[in-house]
Nucleic acid binder design. Sequence first.
DNA 1: GCCGTTTTCGGCCCGACTGTTTTCAGTCG
Length: 577
Amino acid sequence: MENAAIADIFDEMADLMEFRSENPFRIRAYRGGAQAIRDLDEPVAAIAKDSGRNLADLPGIGKTLAEKTLTLLETGKLPQLEELRRAVPVVVVQMARIPGLGAKKAAKLNERLTIESLDDLKKACQEGLVAKIKGFGKKTEAAILDGLSIAKQASERIYWAKGDELATVIGEYMRQCKTISQMEWTGSYRRGRETIGDLDLLVVAKDRTAAMDHFEAFPGRSQTIVRGETKISIRVAGAFQVDMRLVEANQFGAALQYFTGSQSHNVHLRRIAKDHGLKINEYGVFRVDDENQVANEPIAGKTEQEVYGAVGLSWIAPELREDRNEFEWATKNKFPELIEMSDVVGDLHMHTTATDGTATIREMADAAIERGLKYIAITDHSKRVAMASGLDEERVRAQWNAIDSLRSEYDGRLVILKGIECDILEKGGMDLSDDCLAEADWVLASVHYGQKQPRDQITERILGAIENPHVDCIAHPTGRLINRRPPYEADMEMIMKAAKANRTMMELNANPARLDLNDIHLAAAKRHGIPIVISTDAHSTDGLVVMKYGIKQARRGGLTKGDVANTRSWEQMKGLQ
DNA sequence: GCCGTTTTCGGCCCGACTGTTTTCAGTCG
């Protein structure tokens, strides 16, 4: 059983325990355990097998969760989970996803009314039955009816790239509001998570009412969820939630830290503050005396640097704030110097009109020069990908000849490499002959068919490609599409060991729907010492723009310039192959 | 359920907003 699957089970247990009003700290412990296992950069199964190590030594995992993990590894099942699933009706879980309803209210509704589906709930609201229950009223009833229609949309997380577009549009609109003197996006968007659940804007404004009015007048707004003294939430583009918080200028750093999260990062930071006799909230850092009295005046808060500095830590890049290794690094002030967009000098995965791209080699080359790149590899599909009219050996050689004759024209400006994205066949082996692959400057190997093969089979296929001496890099190594398609069942630990042993690189595909490898895998690859290649997989000249999303993901994985191969010149790259 | 320079019990991050309340629970982040 993979780490992610075990983590999902602990998370589900935490969710279900909420419906049973269990001790909230016990619930938090399960969530903490889930995160600890999800964030491991090695398989928990490997630790369990190692007689010299103990699962309970992992932070956040104690005796109980260690035992449950072992049970899951051995049997694939957990009796306590089955029990919880039986105890909590599915419809209650569904109800709790409606904005405004939580576990407690959903459980109460189920207890007082006969509700077996969301349709039953709708009917109960329409008949006025909900408003009669103690603790519920007319407004809650109306809110549930409203929430029912957007429950699915509202709970959907969007790609970071899509969030980036929205944030840009809203940001430009908000900048027209003259009373706003300071403004910054916070939350998971600032941390660069691959998906975004909502957007959070932090603002300093002289006239708060005017700032809120301006926000509420955003042309894309469909609804105002709440509006108070310091916080307003609206829905835009259908059901997507955008929050704005107003703070004083001397609180900006504290609020920025607070709202950037992650939640578990904040919990950890506040615990450290407590040990220092301090208290951190969104208004600043405050001294707490022996009597537990909190001082009126903050000792820090204007900048994030001040806030972290107050507890003896150096500033932590938002991409690292997931309560993984960042506090250890901050204590020693030994952070990885995270990669920057300007470090990238080459792009080694792109398509042309020869297969499913929309631009010619020349157009891609010109676009690459405009972006300041020094080299690109043209990597069209191989023949197995018939849908994209993949290249057979004759056509790929013709393309390489064309590249040869273009080279002099681009001499000194851009190196164009003869590449291929060669399919790893379902039955194993490469789609083009070794003789052919040997003629290429750059060979990507990737799985497009038979993605649902069992673990052993698909792992073997990928291992075969890694061991092929002509293959330079494994493209989109897990095949996942965010929110749409799960990763291959492949054994990533085995794949990484083989990649290291065979000097095969691994791709971070920067397409916002892929971002493959993910942050955890990137950290694992770094631990193994495998060079990562960040590539756009562009199918048009505009497609080259996605490199920035890859950089964001790489930073979350803790990668430095040195960890990423295409920050080197092509001459130096050849040494890695 | 986890954890320990307060170590085997007793804590566990912190606050805004809403609705239905007459002082607070639930939800959300």
